[in-house]
Nucleic acid binder design. Structure first.
Length: 261
DNA sequence: AATAGGGCCAACCGCGGACAC
DNA sequence: CGTGTCCGCGGTTGGCCCTAT
């Protein structure tokens, strides 16, 4: 749920109540957020019990801390959990169990609350098979990549990928469509993503001849493994080179523009 | 069109550890 | 050593949104 939406729903504070001791409870208003942000700017994080005294905010320290940590912190990453992050969550959960704050430390910009919610939503219900299922998926991705690299050694050395990509480029003469291969850097991907109004995540889709959608995700600054010229799909991280090679039978020559969403 | 049910996420609650006095 | 305060963590709840019926 986006910021704006939340403000839209709760900005008027309809459902807020005042607890014993005079503390306000329930959804935060934009005004309260502003006060808290100002407080942190001036005094830094911590001393949460001083917030109400110094700002006039009718929230207790715990509530202020939670709001800041889970929602207002400027370094928070918005948008969906990426496949790479999901893999990390699955693997770390297998190692640490429900130690969400520990897991969160390995995912910059994600909060323990967010990870906890994600886990409960996506894995908890599959408790009969979930961990096996998820970790198996991760193993499959790795296996797939290893197989690909083996194959690549045998076949790809003789091919000039730049030539291949330029051939693909030549297939797209329509100016309205811009090619996935053009998104060879983070800046371009980010710029394209930013040009979309609905989300900050750098992802998109390519379509096969039959119209089947194939989801892809471009790297960003929070994903060190996703370097320039790389992208994600539901099978893991690929370099563009890998992706186009492996996609030979999947993605057609008349590849259409990413559908950023 | 109405509604039931699930998905999703922000926020609250209770507990325990760290620290100061 | 006991007590109080602050802080962080994990579990849970409440409520909006979306989708299926």
């Amino acid at each position: 749920m986006s910021w704006g939406v939340m403000e839209g729903h709760f900005g008027c504070g309809i459902s807020c109540s005042t607890a014993a001791g005079g503390w306000r409870k329930g959804p935060w208003t934009a005004e309260e957020d502003k006060l808290l942000i100002e407080y942190v700017k001036l005094h830094g994080e911590g001393r949460w019990n001083s917030v109400s005294r110094l700002t006039g905010l009718k929230r207790n320290g715990k509530s202020c801390r939670l709001r800041w940590v889970n929602y207002l912190r400027p370094d928070l990453k918005r948008g969906h959990i990426t496949p790479q992050e999901e893999t990390i969550i699955v693997e770390l959960h297998a190692r640490w169990g429900n130690r969400w704050s520990t897991i969160a430390r390995s995912l910059p910009g994600r909060t323990d609350n967010e990870i906890k919610n994600y886990w409960r939503t996506h894995f908890k219900k599959k408790t009969k098979v979930p961990l096996l299922d998820a970790s198996q998926k991760a193993r499959n991705r790795l296996l797939k990549r290893q197989q690909f690299h083996q194959q690549q050694k045998e076949q790809l050395n003789q091919l000039d990928m730049k030539k291949r990509i330029s051939l693909l480029d030549d297939d797209t003469n329509n100016d309205d469509n811009y090619h996935v291969a053009q998104f060879s850097g983070r800046q371009e991907a980010a710029a394209a993503a930013n040009s979309s109004s609905s989300s900050s995540s750098s992802n998109g889709s390519v379509y096969t001849d039959s119209g089947e959608e194939h989801r892809i995700f471009f790297g960003n600054d929070m994903l060190p493994a996703a370097e320039e010229g790389s992208l994600w799909d539901d099978e893991g991280l690929w370099s563009l080179e890998e992706y186009f090679h492996a996609a030979a039978g999947r993605v057609p020559a008349n590849l259409v523009a990413p559908n950023f969403c």
